[in-house]
Design a binder for these strands. Structure first.
Length: 327
DNA sequence: AAAAACCTCAACCGCCATGCT
DNA sequence: CAGCATGGCGGTTGAGGTTTT
């Protein structure tokens, strides 16, 4: 007796999503937010399994996703994180807010893994005397991993319980993570879909081309003020850590924004966008001044990839360390 | 030009965790 | 506490595109 299927497979459509389906899904989420996936197919008329809807939203339609063209920083970040976390793609994605776990997983499996293997082979063949900068970088990475392991074991010997309670205090009741909205709006994606749809040749295969680039990006006033409100209780900590902008991902990694043509319709009340209701990506956390050991772990993790973190990582790193120490 | 090999990535599957009744 | 529903995750697949032969 097998497990019951999550839905009636015989009445469910499979395969690539069409732009029409995407628009139905996004419109529904505009109104109700990304929750209660079970009811989505019923309410939208989509002949899709609830899981499929959730996945489509999370990996493709959700605003703020950047697709393709991983930067060198992101690449290094992924390599670092993979060394630290293993194949925990969702956890890795929380450090790269613009990337989905699926994207990171694909990038690792199809590209990075092979690349590292090649580098390893090359390093084995070449002698240490004529090493390239890549070889040196690879060796540095290995050394970094060792450093972090050492730092973690130092932390354990220093007093596991001390650090544990410190982290628990920061993560738990003491420092509640700020609810930072990830979705500026879904309207950007609808606009993009519509643009692509209209551009699309009649010979549509259902796969939407998507480079994810949104050049006309800027927060609208309402979004920014809502975020500012949400963060106001952490004003002093934020100032201490260099201001609000990095936390909003305004620089260097842009948070989702509303494209001009759609933001107009939003402003005029034609649509009721889903805004600032629920966080599906992990939240921003602001920790107190780090202790030395935590700081050395953090330095290792941030090294070469810090700019892409958007200030989110203290909380997540703490979570992972807490998990590590608890195990 | 055509076939084969290779690559990419969206989507699916099944397991597990969590929350609700 | 047990059982069920639902969401989340990681591994895998396969269609479609690209490059090589």
């Amino acid at each position: 007796m097998g497990r019951l299927p999550c839905c009636d497979k015989t009445r469910v459509k499979k395969g690539p999503w069409t732009p029409e389906e995407d628009i139905l899904l996004v419109s529904y989420i505009q109104e109700h937010g990304p929750r209660n996936w079970k009811s989505v197919p019923n309410h939208t008329g989509l002949l899709r399994c609830s899981k499929s809807c959730r996945l489509r939203w999370a990996n493709y339609l959700r605003p703020g996703i950047r697709r393709g063209d991983f930067t060198e920083q992101e690449e290094k970040m992924i390599i670092h994180l993979q060394a630290l976390l293993g194949n925990r793609w969702a956890a890795m994605a929380s450090y790269l807010p613009q990337r989905t776990d699926n994207d990171i997983k694909n990038y690792w499996n199809t590209y990075l893994k092979k690349k590292l293997r090649k580098l390893q082979t090359a390093a084995d063949i070449s002698s240490p005397t004529n090493s390239t900068s890549r070889d040196r970088w690879e060796r540095r990475l290995q050394a970094d991993i060792q450093t972090t392991r050492q730092a973690l074991s130092d932390a354990l010997s220093r007093g596991k319980s001390d650090l544990l309670s410190e982290l628990k205090h920061d993560i738990g009741a003491g420092k509640k993570p700020v609810q930072v909205p990830v979705y500026a709006s879904s309207t950007e994606n609808i606009a993009r879909l519509l643009r692509e749809w209209t551009k699309k040749s009649p010979k549509s295969d259902g796969r939407t081309s998507n480079d994810g680039s949104s050049s006309e990006s800027s927060f609208n006033d309402g979004s920014l003020s809502s975020i500012t409100d949400a963060l106001s209780c952490y004003k002093s900590e934020i100032e201490e850590l260099g201001g609000l902008e990095p936390f909003l991902g305004l620089e260097p990694c842009m948070e989702p924004s509303i494209s001009s043509e759609v933001s107009q319709s939003v402003a005029s009340g034609e649509t009721r966008p889903y805004l600032f209701q629920e966080e599906t990506k992990p939240n921003l956390g602001v920790l107190d001044q780090p202790n030395v050991t935590l700081s050395s772990c953090r330095k290792w993790l941030y090294d070469d990839g810090a700019d892409s973190l958007c200030g989110r990582s203290d909380f997540h790193l703490s979570e992972h360390l807490l998990e590590f120490f608890s195990s």
